[in-house]
Nucleic acid binder design. Sequence first.
RNA 1: GGGGAUGUAGCUCAAUUGGUUAGAGCACCGGACUGUCGAUCCGGAGGUUGCGGGUUCGAGCCCCGUCAUCCUCGCCA
Length: 582
Amino acid sequence: MASWKRTHTCGELRLEHADSTVTLNGWVQNYRDHGGLVFIDLRDRYGKTQIVFDPKFDPTMHELARSLRAEHVVSATGIVSDRGEARNPKIPTGDIEIKARGLIILNRSEVPPFEIGTEEEPASEDIRLRYRFLDLRRPKMQRILMLRHQIVTAMREYLNSEGFLEIETPILSRSTPEGARDFLVPSRMHPGSWYALPQSPQLLKQILMVAGYDKYYQLARCFRDEDLRANRQPEFSQLDLEMAFVDMDGVLSVVEGMTLHLANKVMGKNLVGPFPRLDYDDAMERYGVDKPDTRFGLELVDITKLAHETEFSVFKSAGCVRGINAKGAAEKFSRKDLDQLTAFVQEQGAKGLAWMKVEADKLQSPIAKFFSDAQQAELRNQLQAEAGDVLFFVADAREKTHAPLNALRNKLGEDLKLYDPAELRFLWVIKFPMFEWDETERRFIAMHHPFTAPLEEDWPLLETDPAAARAQAYDLVLNGEELVSGSIRLHQHEKQMKIFELIGMNKEEQEKRFGFFLEALRYGAPPHGGMAIGIDRCVMEFAGVDSIRETMAFPKTQRGQDLMMGSPAEVEPKQLRELGLR
RNA sequence: GGGGAUGUAGCUCAAUUGGUUAGAGCACCGGACUGUCGAUCCGGAGGUUGCGGGUUCGAGCCCCGUCAUCCUCGCCA
């Protein structure tokens, strides 16, 4: 008996291989039994190839072939043959088929709960997660995980070529409150003490800078025990990067070079830098969000001044009224659609949604009557309105208009198909505020994180008006998703202590929580800065999927469970006793 | 913790106003078939309508509770 080991994959044979004898290994995707001829589509992650069994050649093998079912694993040996007229133009290997001379069933499969070979989603997500070993066998999932591999490979390639060192930091780490809830791991050897899983390797990578590893990166697993979303998992991956002896432009140019390398090499784009930069304040003004999707316009227009002059009491009394002009969309929105949009923005915190359909000679709207002719003309002017447009307005305190308007803008962009989903549009957002006020804790908290340096010229503001101080922090936004986030760090321990103080941490707490870090800063810490890229979100964007669960092999459900292995799970009482927990 | 959607055959879904024996496609099982490629044709089997309770002469459908999955607000330095 010949070897069952494959000589080729199921995706590589072409006409040029005709007449050679080959062996393929793979899963049976489909069988077509004609009583006489039996056709098998054999699939692996490289593709699929048709095998044909002819009873005239070997009746025993033909009978065996008739017993093949979906997802059996087989080794098929045979001769590569030109299919001639019978070729299948739909698949890359469709010019040839294998005329079987040998068949070994390596393993049979139970009837799978859903079909593996189809492109459309074959089952609901919980079924797919429960049978993840089958779900991941689907060509679509294999494409995504292969893309993910290419992305991280390209990242490593680029950074290695730039002289970066890949250095690992511990998973068993220490809780440093501030930020997300930690996952804790009890220590057996120190009962009552706990490790924490890292939310990011932030402090350790800064300490690596102190130690002189001036270009560092790591594909770091990060853990945050917070509620999940479509783009949030309790554990996720970051490309974590830090550089010493750089300023903001130094970091940005490396990240930009790497991002272009990724987009161009992996995605076959032809993008060039530099990416546009937008100040945080301008982003909030024009888009209502710090991560605008700039593939389309629909910028916000502030009509507060005009609104205050109208007779519409909601507008007159609101702190801020801002609008969006949905160009040419009047006929696309029925009254029912507009009601649904109103409900949509209310979910985002808006009190309501005012709308106006623009006609040649008037504005059609329940609130048009509150606007004088001159005011209507001015409104048209400010929003550059033309017949056929729909104008939307949200009125509220300024901060409260941001979320609903951004959500509305993104929804309109998507619903009205204002952009090409395949386009990759990058944008730097810079000059974030240092702090935001936390009403429940009655103190400032760091907007990025408390290790971020302010703009040099804003140091004086920290004494007089901390809320106005801006940080040397930067985000790289891709299609409305925050892809990269980073900052130049504080490297002088007095300045670091000053910032800790401003967020309400006294010297005692500083020493207790971050003593090791402050100490390191005293021993010749160089100026440094860096950033982190969310790998999973990056894959989401590049693969064009809208759930982070599609980008990782074994994701957890919204309630943090693995439906296949059944985690989290109870453990033996003995294990708890050893940990001193019971 | 709050709001919302969904849950019917292995899978995806349907089932009129609460009314006869809960249907279809795919998958599965048996049979026919030598050029199919989502094979085709004939036949068959397959149901705790998520779970528990209630209303009713009668519940897949209405009510209450609960569980699961998803979306979302809060949360995520």
